[in-house]
Amino acid sequence: MKRTVKKQFWLSRDEAQELQKKAKRTCLSEAALFRLLVRGFEPKEKPDDRFYDVMRQLSAIGNNLHQLTVKANAIGFLDMQKLNTEAERWHSFQADVERQFLRPEKSDLKWQ
């Protein structure tokens, strides 16, 4: 999206510090945070390192499941339908965790 309209406004020192603090907690620039808020989304704060450790483990397990699926399909040894169902369930769980911790949500603010 090309941004061609410039808006300039004034903040108090406290407001400016609050905007800076919130942008830092969400790992967004102040402008990106502002644009999300204007569009009605409430960004999530950056999760702690435990979240990223869990996501790496989920990703590794998902990759292993995928590799097992490919190998099992090649040799015809495992119940492919069951293995594929479990792999899909695992990837869905991983996506749900990402959505819960990382993706901004629509805000319930009434003025939007």
Rank of each mutant, 00 (worst) to 15 (best):
M1C: 04
K2L: 09
R3E: 10
K7F: 14
Q8T: 15
Q8H: 14
R13W: 00
D14G: 03
A16M: 09
E18L: 13
K21R: 15
L28P: 07
E30F: 10
A32W: 03
A32G: 13
A32H: 03
F34T: 08
R35E: 07
L37F: 06
K44G: 12
K44H: 13
P47E: 03
D48A: 05
D48I: 05
F51N: 02
F51V: 02
D53Y: 04
D53P: 00
M55G: 01
R56I: 00
Q57N: 14
Q57S: 04
S59A: 01
A60K: 07
N63H: 11
N63V: 05
T69H: 10
V70Q: 03
K71E: 06
A72S: 10
A72R: 05
I75F: 05
L78N: 02
D79F: 00
D79L: 01
Q81C: 02
K82G: 04
E86I: 11
A87Y: 06
E88M: 01
R89E: 08
S92A: 12
F93E: 06
D96V: 10
V97G: 00
Q100F: 14
L102D: 02
L102W: 03
L102A: 06
P104D: 05
S107T: 13
S107W: 01
L109W: 11
K110R: 12
